[in-house]
Design a protein around this nucleic acid. Structure first.
Lengths: 204, 204
DNA sequence: GTCTATACATCGATAGAC
DNA sequence: GTCTATCGATGTATAGAC
């Protein structure tokens, strides 16, 4: 008995073409975001770059927020694929360094994407629960690696994430393309782990 | 011989009134910024709050950028007044902690002001040279105190500023009104100074 | 110095023909 | 699915009367 093709059937050529155009729009949206920042994307400009009229975009995204949400989800998927694809060293400290090296490379190669995923300044954008779940998966990986390196408390997790974000943000804002800040990440990690050990020692 | 009153003469009642109205506009602009963020300030809304029509604002500010610049300068002057008004402990480390305690309090009491002064995300705003000179004075104070505490290299100054900014930004973004991040500033300072000492020791 | 009126631009979103 | 046409709102800035 032949199954009737639903709107999600990837073999339906109309569905395939729809998905392809949607992907093309997203690709172009990332390009625009890289040039002028995510908040500066306008649907009119985006439509011109994909050879469509601006209202036609609404066939693919119900609203501008929907477009942002698709970008947010895609960015998180890219990040997760890269992080989960890493073969991490057995040594937990080295694993942590590899993790952050990869994450920092990801941040620097597309600051707009980093802004969308981690700074979330974009006015009027709120990620959907489904997209946000992807972001949580990254955070869980972070906590797991930190725990393996001896960092357990929420305070320490909070502070360390803030320190790393601070370095990455200064790098992107003040020295794009360089390494003025991020080249110090390794010793900052060592410094922090030493401090955690020290606090544990002195609290007993 | 009586001096002719120029347009800067503070005794000229018209000049005084102009300055007062300008100050009132600025006060209201800060209020609006605190509510919806600096970039969301619109001249129309601002005019309504000071009981003027929107075009009348152009008597006081030549453009929106001029308004931002006046806010930027005023914010920096407030910060400098607070910092320079501190009676700092003789111990350089304690002095550094006092300095950052005051700066953090300043940041938390008006996140929009902090954003304008230190994050500078505001689209289309570029501070004038005069205003920027104020920001440099703050940075000089920072370097002076750091040097007194044994931190000399540009790398260390860079990294530490990034760490502090990271903590402050996470605090503002994720826990406004709380102390989830900033309550750790003191031990982060200690940790950093210890690390600098350690690096000096091991490099000889 | 303040006002009315308006120019001028940009933007997101919808209606409805094809 | 794409288009033209348009709505409706918002925004900065200017012209010119009073």
């Amino acid at each position: 008995m032949k199954r009737k093709a639903g709107p999600d059937d990837a073999t339906d050529p109309r569905v395939r073409r729809h998905a392809q155009t949607k992907a093309r729009i997203l690709r172009e949206a990332w390009k625009l975001a890289a040039q002028e920042g995510v908040p500066a994307i306008s649907l009119g400009e985006l439509a011109r770059h994909v050879d469509l009229r601006q209202p036609s975009l609404y066939t693919y995204f119900a609203s501008k927020n929907d477009l942002y949400d698709a970008m947010f989800a895609q960015g998180n998927e890219e990040l997760l694929a890269r992080i989960e694809g890493l073969t991490l060293p057995a040594n937990p400290v080295d694993a942590l360094k590899s993790f952050f090296r990869e994450m920092t490379a990801f941040a620097l190669e597309d600051p707009a994407r980093y802004q969308l995923l981690f700074q979330r300044n974009i006015p009027g954008f709120e990620p959907s629960p489904d997209s946000y779940a992807l972001a949580l998966r990254f955070y869980e990986m972070y906590t797991r690696l930190m725990r393996a390196a001896g960092v357990e408390s929420r305070s320490h997790l909070d502070v360390f994430a803030a320190l790393v974000a601070g370095i990455q943000e200064q790098q992107i804002a003040n020295n794009p393309g360089g390494t003025r800040w991020v080249r110090h990440l390794d010793w900052v990690i060592d410094m922090f782990l030493r401090e955690v050990k020290r606090q544990k020692r002195s609290s007993t």
